[in-house]
Computed example of a mutant assay.
Amino acid sequence: MVQKSEKLGLVLDVETTGLGPDSDEVIELAMKLFSFHENTGEILDIKEEGSFLREPLSMSAKKIIIKHTKYMESHLMPSLGKALMKG
């Protein structure tokens, strides 16, 4: 239960394939409901959280994801792998 000096807040994170409302799609939503102290703004508790994934429907969105995934695999993952091996 929320105390009198506590308020509720919600953080919403939206992942999309781009910024074009006619050409891009929402592929993930993540939310956190939290309580915070009214006077200090201090976060007191995470009340509830959830994340929802969605496969893109359009071929253009799928191509963007494939392009970025291949870039990550070829450019970022080798560096990450080397860093992890060094420990």
Rank of each mutant, 00 (worst) to 15 (best):
residue 1 M to R: 04
residue 2 V to M: 00
residue 3 Q to C: 04
residue 4 K to E: 13
residue 4 K to R: 13
residue 4 K to C: 05
residue 5 S to P: 01
residue 5 S to W: 08
residue 6 E to A: 10
residue 8 L to D: 01
residue 8 L to C: 12
residue 10 L to Q: 05
residue 11 V to D: 14
residue 13 D to E: 11
residue 13 D to T: 10
residue 13 D to P: 09
residue 14 V to D: 05
residue 14 V to G: 05
residue 14 V to M: 15
residue 14 V to L: 15
residue 15 E to G: 14
residue 15 E to H: 15
residue 15 E to V: 13
residue 15 E to L: 15
residue 16 T to R: 12
residue 17 T to S: 03
residue 17 T to I: 04
residue 17 T to Y: 02
residue 18 G to H: 12
residue 20 G to K: 14
residue 20 G to Q: 11
residue 21 P to E: 03
residue 21 P to R: 00
residue 21 P to A: 02
residue 22 D to V: 08
residue 26 V to I: 13
residue 26 V to E: 07
residue 27 I to D: 03
residue 27 I to E: 01
residue 28 E to P: 02
residue 30 A to V: 10
residue 30 A to C: 11
residue 30 A to E: 11
residue 30 A to H: 08
residue 31 M to R: 12
residue 31 M to C: 15
residue 31 M to D: 12
residue 32 K to V: 14
residue 33 L to D: 01
residue 33 L to K: 11
residue 33 L to E: 02
residue 34 F to I: 07
residue 34 F to Y: 09
residue 34 F to R: 01
residue 35 S to F: 02
residue 35 S to G: 07
residue 35 S to I: 03
residue 36 F to D: 00
residue 39 N to Y: 01
residue 39 N to C: 00
residue 40 T to S: 13
residue 40 T to H: 01
residue 41 G to Q: 02
residue 42 E to G: 01
residue 45 D to N: 06
residue 45 D to C: 00
residue 45 D to K: 10
residue 45 D to V: 05
residue 46 I to A: 00
residue 47 K to W: 09
residue 48 E to C: 04
residue 49 E to K: 11
residue 50 G to T: 15
residue 50 G to R: 10
residue 50 G to Y: 06
residue 54 R to A: 15
residue 55 E to R: 10
residue 57 L to E: 15
residue 57 L to F: 07
residue 58 S to E: 03
residue 58 S to N: 01
residue 59 M to K: 13
residue 59 M to N: 12
residue 60 S to R: 10
residue 61 A to F: 04
residue 62 K to P: 05
residue 62 K to W: 11
residue 64 I to R: 09
residue 64 I to A: 09
residue 64 I to P: 05
residue 65 I to Q: 08
residue 65 I to Y: 05
residue 66 I to K: 13
residue 68 H to V: 08
residue 68 H to D: 12
residue 68 H to W: 12
residue 70 K to Y: 11
residue 70 K to M: 08
residue 70 K to E: 14
residue 76 L to T: 14
residue 77 M to E: 12
residue 77 M to Q: 08
residue 80 L to K: 09
residue 80 L to P: 03
residue 81 G to N: 10
residue 81 G to I: 09
residue 84 L to T: 04
residue 85 M to H: 11
residue 85 M to R: 11
residue 85 M to A: 13
residue 86 K to G: 14
residue 87 G to C: 04
